[in-house]
Design a protein around this nucleic acid. Structure first.
Lengths: 225, 225
DNA sequence: GCATTTATTTGCGTATGCATTAATGAATGC
DNA sequence: GCATTCATTAATGCATACGCAAATAAATGC
């Protein structure tokens, strides 16, 4: 569920996909270094497509190329996460405002509503994985409704980082009950076509989330690094 | 002045640099298609580094890879520019707010002030190129002061697009006298540490700019495409 | 022993060649 | 004359090979 989908036709795409999976699963641990040739062997293809994949992943902020020292899977510091969240906050809030302004029908907003419902269910059954999945869905759908392809792809990149950080800290966080009230409020503002409120409400929601996860990451770092 | 700087050590970097220049100068025209081998010949290097450069430029939104049809230099539609400006607006406004909150000293804000002064001078001598250069400088410095490396690099990409659009429409626009009043107001808010005002003022500034350039692009398209 | 120089290894950047497959044009049937 | 199939062309995706330069190890001088 971590990366997009389909059957990758080319080796470069396969490499991107598989490397992403390995990064998200932790098989390629944050902070670890890997030679191009090593990755090529693991993926059983030549260095060429691996190199190209790695270049792409570098621009996506998942890893870093350090000539002669291999590619380094980027760790996520609290400072990084603060940056990521600030960017996310701005672009998602923009999307919320625009979504409200577009005046979508209830039907068009159904996926959003459904995601909120699913989060409720997950919270009641204390299923954090399900909650995280539905939360992702909510945010992705929200940005999609903002209809800005550049914002969409930037947010996607930032969300990747959030997902990585969350996977390290999911077990540490309290049940996000308050969070879903926020979602409902954003949803209502969009339904009502209140752009300013949608923007502001969502901004506050993300600012809380930021504070929390940055805090968790700091604690996490203290314990493990 | 279009791309960053230094002496590129590797061919990939040279390729990126030179291709960027050719795109910005119009030597590689928006909408035109080019084979990898063709570009390789022009840059007098093999296809390998060109391919890698092209992959990078694709993620930067300057061109598009269309297998078997060559790489297409992306044209800039008014719709694209609206997207670009919306993203820019959010991230720059964030930077303005943060800059204000950081409480920079007058000395630290000097480059900003200088850029504003240079714009004044350029406007009085009706030198649009100089004005554009100083305007870029102002915005780049502003974002830098926001101290968010992700926002900085995203804004850089978006600014590239703006610069391309501007180079097509610079001669069509009125002298941006009002624009510099905006800059001054943003500057003052930052000096005063008024984050909310800095954010809001800058947002409005960018929204005006967006409206104007999108309008110009529409006219431009009508005339030339 | 320690520092400095020299030798060796090895990873990367780039060039080159080939197989695949999409696009183009020719040829055939209707 | 038009559509469909087949052959041809050619651009790409990838594998492979190689030289260079950085990093490491070895050797030499002190």
């Amino acid at each position: 569920m971590t990366s997009s989908a389909q059957k990758p036709a080319t080796n470069v795409q396969r490499a991107i996909h598989q490397l992403r999976d390995k990064i998200f699963s932790g098989e390629l641990a944050a902070g670890s270094d890997h030679l191009e040739s090593e990755l090529a062997e693991v993926l059983s293809m030549s260095r060429t497509p691996v190199r190209e994949a790695v270049l792409t992943l570098e621009t996506q902020g998942l890893l870093e190329l350090r000539p002669r020292k291999g590619v380094r899977i980027l760790p996520i510091s609290p400072e990084d996460m603060a940056e990521v969240y600030d960017v996310l906050t701005e672009l998602e809030s923009l999307a919320a405002a625009r979504a409200a302004a577009f005046g979508y029908s209830a039907q068009e907003l159904a996926p959003l509503d459904r995601a909120i419902g699913d989060m409720d269910i997950a919270i009641h059954s204390s299923n954090l994985e399900d909650w995280a999945e539905a939360d992702d869905r909510f945010h992705r759908e929200l940005v999609r409704l903002g209809r800005n392809s550049r914002a969409i792809s930037i947010v996607e990149m930032m969300s990747d980082q959030v997902r990585r950080a969350r996977s390290m800290t999911l077990f540490m966080r309290p049940l996000p009950t308050k969070s879903n009230e926020d979602h409902r409020e954003v949803f209502r503002a969009i339904m009502d076509g209140d752009a300013a409120k949608a923007r502001q409400t969502h901004r506050e929601h993300r600012e809380h989330a930021k504070q929390m996860i940055v805090e968790l990451l700091k604690r996490h770092r203290l314990r493990y690094v």
